[in-house]
Amino acid sequence: MNIFDIIGPVMIGPSSSHTAGAVRLGNLARHILGEEPKKARIILYNSFASTGKGHGTDRALVAGILGFLPDDERIRTSFEEAKKAGLEYELVDGGSKEKLHPNTAEFFLEGPENTTRVVGASVGGGRVMVSSIDGFKTEFSGEYHTVITIHKDIPGIISSVTSCLSKKNINIAQMRVFRESRGEKALMIIEADEILPEGIKEELERINGIFRAMNISPVY
């Protein structure tokens, strides 16, 4: 057990799941978009919808989209910060949906060039799990340096990606591939031990068959 999980983390209150976890989810959604978000529509479900306001979940989600981490004192005033940053946001009460985790948020983000749809949940103690990106089922926690690719499901893509990483001396901790159906689009998640170099996203996007790549910094 990491000793700083027992005493720690340093965070903005009041709740690890409803505040710190919400910031982490917003931050991951921002990195998945991969550019400065200009518009955000966030739907809160279940406990996030019913008790989120008293825990500052709304401000925490917006703070994450602005790129803040759970210990940033600007979380409290994130609505004002969003105005300054030119981020238009809308928070929607999604009510209760039994199929979803109790603390779920769905993000529709729009930047100058891209749009993305991300679903994730705060699963306890401030830990989070992203369960879907652009309709693909996924599963990652944002604990590692993470590379995600959306690519055509054809032979050779995965090895091109891993050889690109190995050339940069990056050790892969975990790796998973999810696909729509054979020969269609697939999504790959690679979690690495080392910091990923700048420009890795662009380099991967030059590989034939890769539609989009994402470089996500840890949010813990």
Partner: peptide
């Protein structure tokens, strides 16, 4: 009080008991 006001604290071991 700082925790409930969205101020900075150390979870020790949790935010509720900080």
């Amino acid at each position: 009080n700082v925790n409930a006001s969205m101020g900075k604290i150390v979870a020790a071991p949790t935010a509720g008991s900080c």
